[in-house]
Amino acid sequence: MQSIQVADYLNHRPVTFSADMRIEAAVEKLLQSGQSGGPVIDSNKHVLGFLSEQDCLKKMLEATYQNESHSVVSDVMNSDPICVAPTDSIVQMADRMTVNAPKLYPVCDEDGRLKGVISRANVLLALDKHLHDTYESGNRYV
């Protein structure tokens, strides 16, 4: 199980944002994607930050009260995202996800370029598949 890596289960085509994107446009992208957040990247796919539904919710609520919005993604994004490596173990990711709040992590290469994202659902799928494979292989010899 330790040999199963993040790279085996990551989403290679996540929703992403640019730092100068308006919050309203970012919210539309989030809603269409079904993701709970996504990496903020530059033109070279370097991860600059992370934008979550919670970040957007706060800013959209504020805009509702003020009846206007002038915010862009860089105003509300988390500028210190936790990136994981494609070679990280799924078991380590599962352990990390039971304690830390992020539901979704950017997966970056050693240069900080985005390779995809890994979610709790991706990790659950990997664990579930492993358990089913183990169960099936164990019953073959009975």
Rank of each mutant, 00 (worst) to 15 (best):
V40H: 11
V40R: 08
V40D: 11
D42S: 08
D42R: 07
D42A: 03
S43C: 10
S43N: 15
S43E: 15
N44T: 12
N44W: 06
K45N: 15
K45P: 03
H46T: 13
H46F: 14
V47A: 09
L48T: 06
G49A: 10
G49Q: 10
F50L: 14
S52N: 05
S52K: 09
S52G: 10
E53R: 13
E53L: 10
E53Y: 01
Q54P: 00
D55E: 12
D55I: 02
D55V: 02
C56K: 03
C56I: 04
L57H: 11
L57S: 11
L57F: 14
M60E: 08
E62L: 04
E62P: 00
E62Y: 03
A63N: 09
T64K: 14
Y65V: 14
Q66R: 15
N67A: 10
E68I: 06
S69R: 05
H70K: 15
H70D: 12
H70V: 08
V72L: 01
V72E: 09
V73M: 06
V73P: 02
S74M: 03
D75G: 05
N78P: 01
N78C: 09
S79R: 08
S79W: 02
I82P: 02
C83H: 06
V84F: 03
V84W: 06
A85K: 12
A85G: 00
P86V: 05
P86G: 15
P86I: 03
D88M: 15
D88K: 13
S89Y: 11
I90L: 07
I90Q: 00
I90H: 05
V91G: 00
V91A: 11
Q92G: 08
M93V: 10
A94I: 04
A94F: 12
A94S: 13
D95N: 08
D95F: 09
D95Q: 11
D95A: 13
D95G: 05
D95I: 12
R96L: 15
R96E: 07
R96A: 14
R96V: 08
T98P: 00
N100I: 06
N100R: 12
P102C: 09
L104D: 03
L104S: 12
L104H: 13
Y105N: 06
P106G: 02
P106A: 04
V107I: 09
C108G: 04
E110A: 09
D111V: 09
D111K: 15
G112S: 11
G112Y: 05
G112D: 10
G112K: 05
R113D: 00
R113Y: 01
L114Q: 07
L114G: 03
L114W: 09
K115Y: 04
G116P: 06
V117R: 01
V117C: 08
I118Q: 07
S119C: 07
R120N: 01
R120D: 01
R120G: 07
R120Y: 01
A121E: 11
N122P: 06
V123Q: 00
L124K: 07
L125W: 08
L125P: 00
A126N: 01
L127V: 13
K129C: 06
K129Q: 14
H130K: 05
L131I: 14
L131C: 10
H132F: 13
D133Y: 02
D133L: 13
